[in-house]
Amino acid sequence: MSQPINIPKLGIFLGVVSAVAAGLLSTVSGMTAPTIDANKKAAIKTAMDQVLPEYDNDLSTATNTFISSAGWPVTFYTAKKDGKIVGFAGKVDNPDDGFSGVISLMIGLMPDGRVGTIATDGKTNSAVIVTAQTETPGLGTSVTDRKVKKTIVDLIKGGEPLSGLIPNPYLDWYAGRSGKAEWIAQKEDKGEGVNAKTGATITSRAVGRAIYAVSETAQQHLQELSEGAE
């Protein structure tokens, strides 16, 4: 404690260290930024491909954004094939209802505004994916995740690659339905028999509300959606 503290010297040292660190970081950031950006775009594209039937237009230009009744912006991408609308993909973030943090969903809609896609064999396919969430692992995530359940038997046999979405009963329930206000009121056995997970009511409800927001908004603006995107 005897020697005096040389403040300028300490300051300069810390400044130099920080400057070197900043230079290094800006280099790395510049190097990785294009890849990170491409990754994000690819993730959105993959999600859209999963919730839409085959299409041939550029979705990034065919967008409409509307505000849902819950106050969340919903971005719609209009998918066309040979100039005919084959479906919409609705992207929404539910920042209000999740157990922790924002739940983001990508939801495929049929041209008439119902949730889901129509497969070539006429069946209705599920088209709801949760793209980002921070729910409780094991509880909330069982509602949101579409994860492959591999077993040791599959590994030994060398399973065949899955086609389409990995099933999730809580998300698949919405396929072929159009938004009803009861979805958001789901509590125990009330509502329209919504498939909610015991112990993860909050997550189930948050997902239901987000899907409702997309479906409801699409129905309100179906006219504009069908005409708007050229």
Binding site: L14, V17, A21, L24, L25, V28, T32
Partner: peptide
């Protein structure tokens, strides 16, 4: 500062 720099580099690389 040194540690934070390395963590940010790892973070960006992982992203």
């Amino acid at each position: 500062v040194v540690i934070a720099t390395f963590v940010t580099i790892i973070d960006l690389m992982m992203q």
